Amino acid sequence: MGKSKLWDRQQLLVAFDLYFRLRFGQFDHRNSTVIYFANLIGRTPSALAMKLSNLASLDPVITSSGRSGLTGASTADRTMWLEMKTDWLAFSEQMNAVVSTLGEPLQDVMPDVREEPLVSYHGMTKEVITKVRIGQSYFRTAVLSAYNNRCCISGLAVPKLLIASHIVPWSEDPQNRLNPTNGLALSALHDKAFDLGLLTIDESYRVVVSGKINHKNDHFFDSSIKSFHGKSIFLPDKSSPQADFLAMHRETIFEKRF
């Protein structure tokens, strides 16, 4: 397929999928994942790397940090970016549907991809469970890649101990279940504390630990959770946590439960 031909929708869906799965610094024609998927969609690695950088120019997190990506985003790129923001769930299902038909499972191409189990699959059909699992894999990879595979509170960088934590719980906002801006990369401990409302993130992206917890003489709690009170989280390269999602967590989970 010649470079001069317009990108079709399937190729763009693959590019969008990789945009969220890869870190900003991995948008390179020498990256093995870029090479692999470029070959599958009939584009050169350079063309796919360029497309990823064009998509970066549409990402407000990238542009607000002084990085601009490239300036060649097409009308189709912009239209699909808006489509994605309007309905994350439908768009992610389309990305997954295309990527799943291309070749090897993502687990074989990108080893960090793995499933994070939901609390329960009760009442779901096998087809729905499959979609949920694929969606969880996408969400995890998109969130962790944005935070460079580090806990945004502690800096822990062991992928097996990291969780792509939903800010607004999975069950409470179906439309934003797979929206990476509804996620934080957290250690398993801080994910649980966040989920229970033991801590939250304020308007200035600082950690707030509940003062209503009875933790006298608990040195582990003091060192692993309380010590982060007032400290800024590490903000991601892309897909920065959405302010209204954090506000909802503060209002309905953190303050309400304690």
Rank of each mutant, 00 (worst) to 15 (best):
G123Y: 06
F245K: 09
M84A: 06
A56D: 10
K226A: 13
Q242I: 15
F16A: 04
R78Q: 15
T33Q: 07
Y121K: 06
W81H: 12
A76M: 08
N214C: 07
S32M: 15
V109E: 04
D28Q: 00
T86G: 09
M110A: 10
M248C: 04
S68F: 15
F234H: 07
S100G: 11
H249Y: 01
R250P: 00
L6Q: 08
W170C: 02
A157L: 04
A97T: 14
D173G: 05
S4W: 14
L70K: 14
N182L: 06
S92D: 02
V128P: 01
K226F: 06
S210M: 11
H122N: 08
S74R: 05
I35V: 10
L144Y: 03
Q94A: 09
L58S: 05
D17K: 06
D195P: 02
L40G: 00
M95H: 08
P241A: 08
E251G: 05
F228W: 06
M95W: 10
I153P: 02
M50D: 15
R67L: 15
S32F: 15
Q136S: 07
D244A: 04
H219V: 10
L82F: 13
N176D: 14
P236L: 09
D77F: 07
L235N: 02
S204P: 00
L189Q: 01
L18N: 06
T130Y: 04
G211Q: 06
F254L: 11
R206F: 01
M248R: 14
L40Y: 01
R140K: 11
F20V: 00
L161E: 09
G42W: 07
A47R: 12
M110R: 15
R257D: 00
Y121D: 09
E127P: 00
H219L: 15
S4E: 13
S204W: 00
L89M: 13
S210T: 05
N176R: 12
S4G: 03
C151M: 01
F20M: 05
P236M: 07
L199P: 13
A90V: 10
L22S: 12
I167M: 04
E104S: 14
Y205I: 02
S223Y: 01
V143L: 12
V128E: 13
M84P: 02
L161H: 08
A38S: 13
A142F: 04
R133L: 07
R206Q: 13
R23W: 01
E104R: 14
F20C: 03
N182K: 05
D77M: 09
S53I: 07
D202Q: 08
D222G: 09
I62A: 04
L22H: 10
K256G: 00
T252Y: 02
K3I: 12
P169M: 07
A97R: 15
L102T: 11
D17C: 11
V113L: 10
A49W: 10
L82V: 15
K238V: 11
A56Y: 05
F20W: 11
A185L: 05
